[in-house]
Amino acid sequence: MITAFNISFALCLVALIVAFVGLLNKREIVGRIGFGVNILAVAALTVYIVMRWMAAGRAPFSNMFESLVLFAWTILVVYIFVYKKLKLPIVTAALSLMVVLTLAYATTFGADIRPLVPALQSNWLTVHVFTCFLGYGGFAVSFIAAISYVIASRENSKAAYETKDSLEVVMAKTVAFGFLFLTVGIMTGAVWANSAWGTYWSWDPKETWSLVTWLVYAGFLHCRFIKGWRGQKSAWMSILGFISVLFTYFGVNFLLKGLHSYL
């Protein structure tokens, strides 16, 4: 089983190398190869997750190692969906780097399968974690697009107008996608909490931070679609949103205590 993990990790590394080659050699074929490798990486990671699922008899989404693997998977999946719009070597490289770092970080946590405490034995939990992480995957891709946009907007940048334009569109599309799934994630989490503890919201730090993240992206959507904010302003909001995601994910675990401290 761990071989499947190692193969996916190796494929992600290959994708990273190809992406760096792509930075130097801008030919279309390099990008295609990199995309192909990424597809293989997702496939291998999917196999690993499914194997782990079967071995454990439950969804493998319940500790730091498992959730980081899932995070890497969702980033890749979202990336594959927006690839057509975003064939930029720099974006590919940044995303590959993010995926590799996520998996590398995962290996610092134990990969052993643990039994679950009663409160975690729920299908709602599976849906909750999966949808939250799909949301995070969307926000991660948006973040990369936003950073690239900010860089492309510097005065001496040679970035073409179309490049910035597609970054802009991807940035907003992935936020919309992420927002929808974060919303589903928060709500299924609430339903789960209600079925386990009789209360759908208890202001624990992770819940509260997910609300903060949600509010930031709600702000992004309103500013962009109603007030017509474009470009750098909305890019910075996407970056701020992702910082909030990271804090919700890691910061709360390490700095604050609460119901979710096992994940």
Partner: peptide, 11 residues
């Protein structure tokens, strides 16, 4: 209209 003043702009 991904650039500048959207059609939804009410401001």
């Amino acid at each position: 209209d991904s650039h500048g003043g959207g059609k939804n702009s009410i401001e």
